[in-house]
């Protein structure tokens, strides 16, 4: 009981700290200096209609690189941790005919939607991370519909490594041909709103999407309890 009261006091203290910070919060009337620079000059510099994409890929491109490498580390640590142990053999049950047929019908549509999301990342809401998550969900549906077949993990490994290498190579190309690492003005920035515009951003997002999709799928497939894939 005393323990719980202590915890309650701790949480209440933290809540009071939050309250003092937020009680007098008033939203600013206008954007701060960096954001207004992004909104004003960033449009002509980067040429992406979606400003979030411009910030994620170009202005804060190094953050994205770090994030992608964190995901890669997570996936590899998971594989290291979970595959080594020999799990008990579980007989897998076959899924029903309806699910198999429907998944054959749905997988191409979901894959196409994922690709649409990350190719149009500089125009509409969306981008590499969302598209990668959608691709991963399509692949997980494929696994759930045919649990006995298993997934060939080497394809994901190869896709992931190639996309990562291409991402960094494009960044280095930015140093050589344009202003700095991951600068998007390697190829001319088109007019805002076209599909082929915003310099190199769509190409970077394609590779980010493929990398994130492969990584998320390998995270999920490492967590599942299929004895067949542990051997490989």
């Amino acid at each position: 009981m005393i323990k719980k009261l202590t915890f309650l006091a701790l949480i209440a203290g933290f809540g009071y700290m939050l309250w003092t910070g937020l009680a007098k919060y008033n939203a600013a009337e206008s954007l701060n200096r960096i954001s207004s620079y992004y909104a004003q000059d960033g449009l002509e510099e980067v040429g992406a209609a979606n400003l979030v994409t411009a910030v994620v890929v170009t202005y804060r491109g190094l953050d994205t690189l770090g994030e992608v490498s964190i995901l890669f580390l997570t996936a590899s640590i998971l594989g290291f941790f979970l595959v080594s142990g020999k799990g008990p053999k579980i007989p897998l049950q076959d899924s029903s005919e309806i699910l198999k047929t429907a998944s054959k019908l749905l997988e191409p549509i979901i894959l196409l939607f994922g690709i649409y999301v990350f190719i149009n990342g500089h125009l509409t809401p969306g981008g590499g991370f969302q598209g990668g998550a959608i691709l991963a969900s399509a692949l997980i549906l494929a696994y759930l519909a045919n649990p006995k077949e298993g997934i060939n993990k080497s394809i994901f490994r190869i896709t992931e490594s190639i996309s990562g290498v291409v991402f960094i190579l494009i960044g280095i190309l930015g140093i050589v041909l344009a202003g700095g690492f991951l600068d998007n003005r390697i190829i001319p920035v088109g007019s805002i709103g076209d599909l082929i515009s915003a310099g190199i951003i769509p190409i970077i997002y394609i590779f980010v999407g493929m990398k994130v999709g492969a990584e998320l799928t390998s995270i999920v497939t490492n967590l599942k309890h299929s004895p067949k894939n542990n051997v490989e």
Partner: peptide, 20 residues
């Protein structure tokens, strides 16, 4: 179209899994 395909399939899978 997407709802027409996915909704019955997902409920079928749910019902089958809970029966199993």
């Amino acid at each position: 179209i997407f709802i027409i395909i996915t909704n019955p399939v997902s409920s079928h899978v749910l019902a089958r899994a809970s029966h199993k």
